[in-house]
Structures are given as C-alpha cells and as structure tokens.
C-alpha cells in the first residue's frame, strides 16, 4: 500500500510527466521569467500561434517599444534554446511553442 505523491498525481490527474518538464523549466528559469513574461507565454500557449503585439494586446499589457522589445528579446532567447519557434507570414513574425516542448504548453495551460 502506498500513497500517491505530487509527481504521480500530476501524471494521473493532469496527464503530464514531471520529469519531461525539468528541462523546459530550467530554460525558463535561466532567462529571468517574470510574472508578465509568464503571462505572455501562457497567452501564447492558449492561442497556439501569435505575434508579440497581439499577445500583449490580449493581456492588456503595455505595447510600447520598450515592453515589446523586452518580450521580443526574451522570445529570441527561448528560440535559441529551442523552446519557441518563429515563422514569417507576410513579413510578420508569428511565434509558437516548438513541438518538442508541447508538454510544457499543456502544463502551462492547465
């Protein structure tokens, strides 16, 4: 007889293996993920694909040059780590989570 602990509960209730999340968590914590940045990541996970401007607008965050550039810099760092990917659609940069880290996207959303 044994009692299920956090990682097993997470696996059975949410359907996510915590060990898979270790690497993306490391990446996120390495790049100074603030409350606002995490909110932007959550919004990206929710909307699947989006531009930074639209993400900030959805969250009613400041879309001025400084805020936009800070998030862009953050996204570029996460892109280098392979967590996010960007594609150009008619000169517009559209961001999404890379397939490799889909579990993180599911975890953030739930």
């Amino acid at each position: 007889m044994s009692v299920l602990a956090y990682s097993e509960l997470l696996k059975r209730i949410v359907g996510i293996d915590e060990k898979i999340l270790e690497k993306p968590y490391q990446i996120i914590s390495k790049h100074n993920t603030t409350k606002n940045r995490l909110a932007v990541l959550k919004e990206l996970a929710r909307t699947e694909k989006n531009t930074i401007g639209r993400l900030l607008k959805n969250l009613k965050l400041n879309r001025s040059g400084g805020s936009y550039l800070t998030i862009k810099k953050y996204f570029l760092e996460l892109e280098k780590e392979g967590l996010l990917k960007k594609e150009k659609v008619n000169k517009i940069e559209v961001w999404s989570f890379s397939e490799k880290y889909n579990d993180l996207k599911v975890f953030i959303l739930r």
């Binding site: 009692v3 299920l4 602990a5 956090y6 509960l9 997470l10 209730i13 949410v14 975890f107």
Partner: peptide, 16 residues
Amino acid sequence: MIENFKKENIGPCKYD
C-alpha cells in the same frame, strides 16, 4: 481520474 480539476489544487501528496 478527476474531472473539472485545477492543477494548483494538487498538493505534495493530496488533492484539494
């Protein structure tokens, strides 16, 4: 196993 759950209600070894 649980429907309508909230991830943040999962504790160290329990569910609230």
